[in-house]
Design a protein around this nucleic acid. Structure first.
Length: 162
DNA sequence: GCCAACGTTGGC
DNA sequence: GCCAACGTTGGC
């Protein structure tokens, strides 16, 4: 039984289309610089699934699904002084940060916007929808995962014909 | 561009 | 160990 997650990315930085056009449709998920998020990364196992979330997007939305294909290993961008993810506290001898590899699985035909997700009763306790939450890596409960999958399969909301 | 909500830093 | 100042995230 896989565990479920949600990964945020700003599409102007790295979008789900960037992922699907990457070699082997796979990328390393570098740059997480928050301890709680890092600890979630370290909990992930190969075969776990994650929603791909577009933050700072119009509209912000869950846009697809990825699979974790490599468990946590040191984020070497942290000890590359030229990287925007450089962190002088991290070193190859004592890495502070971790990353995983993810593989593209699916892009939803209809993105599920925050607004739409907020309207779903089964998602009322979802971490993503909690006020003030900023975690870029979050666990997703199984019932939330299933409710969102069902939404994605049901397609867009019908326009009212009044 | 604004700003609320957090997380981190560092003086004391 | 407190907490003010500062930095970041991310919806709006």
């Amino acid at each position: 039984m896989p565990n479920y997650w949600l990964l945020k990315s700003e599409p102007s930085v790295f979008s789900i289309d960037d992922l699907s056009q990457s070699p082997r449709q796979t990328t390393c998920w570098e740059g997480v610089r928050n301890y709680q998020a890092r600890n979630f990364l370290r909990t992930m196992a190969v075969g776990d699934l994650a929603f791909f979330y577009h933050s700072n997007a119009d509209p912000p939305s869950i846009i697809g699904i990825v699979e974790i294909v490599k468990a946590a290993y040191p984020d070497h961008f942290a000890w590359d002084a030229k990287s925007k993810y450089f962190d002088k506290k991290s070193s190859p001898e004592n890495p502070s940060w971790s990353m995983i590899d993810v593989k593209f699985l699916e892009k939803f035909s209809t993105p599920l916007s925050l607004e739409r997700l907020r309207s779903i009763k089964a998602l009322e306790h979802m971490e993503l929808l909690r006020k003030g939450t900023r975690l870029s890596v979050q666990p997703v409960r199984e019932r939330e995962w299933k409710a969102i999958l069902k939404l994605a399969q049901s397609g867009p909301v019908e326009k009212k014909t009044t």
